[in-house]
Design a protein around this nucleic acid. Structure first.
Lengths: 119, 119
DNA sequence: CGGCATCCACATGGATACTG
DNA sequence: CAGTATCCATGTGGATGCCG
């Protein structure tokens, strides 16, 4: 017991590699930020997320959310009101990514800084 | 003082975001694995890396190494022998990614498993 | 509010072959 | 050994507009 629920995923090569597997799962451009926002601020609606994730388009946000949901990292709850509302929240597996995402954030804070846009 | 050397990098959006910044830096398909191999096994030559990174082509490995070098995450040392040898090793900044890469590896080990290829 | 449809430009990377 | 050259399929995501 203490069996963790595991997601199945393929690796690019022949051998199983947990790093490329994880990178394949959450390595899309906006996935880590989306997960981070949900970790830090809790469940959110679509527009809320779009404003919190700076620079993302609705199309890409939509695709990212679909992808994350299909992989079991987040839940999508539709609230039938007028106007309609949707709440995105992390699943347990999604929340388990906290260490990974915080590692990204901490490293970025320590070793990176904003560069001028080709200035 | 205790100033850490920081790399400059741009974010997709307007605001600076350490997560997307880090993801932009090491978020390429093979970067985390390459860094991991160098962390675990130490400096390596080109072919050595190509055999250790399962599934990568020489073209893509070459491009990845160029990219990582240009970003200051690894060093490239040419050893003039016959036949010529090259040693790739992590810079200090590259080594500082240990936590990030290990977080990816650990999470993958715990929450993922190999899936059959569309079986 | 919470999307989806369309169009399109550019990046990524696999296969293969060749070179100093 | 350590790459480069070429070609090409696919992926990724930005812009814009429309819909329930």
């Amino acid at each position: 017991m203490s069996e963790t629920e595991r997601l199945e995923i393929q690796c690019p090569g022949e051998e199983w590699c947990p790093i490329t597997a994880t990178a394949t799962l959450i390595g899309k451009k906006w996935h880590p930020v989306i997960i981070h926002r949900l970790l830090v601020n809790g469940p959110a609606g679509f527009n809320e997320l779009q404003h919190e994730v700076d620079g993302i388009s609705s199309k890409v946000l939509s695709e990212s959310l679909d992808d994350l949901e299909s992989k079991g990292l987040l839940d999508r709850e539709v609230i039938e009101e007028k106007p309609i509302r949707v709440r995105y929240s992390l699943t347990e597996t999604g929340e388990s990514l906290e260490k990974v995402v915080l590692a990204l954030a901490e490293w970025g804070d320590e070793y990176l800084e904003a560069g001028e846009p080709t200035a």
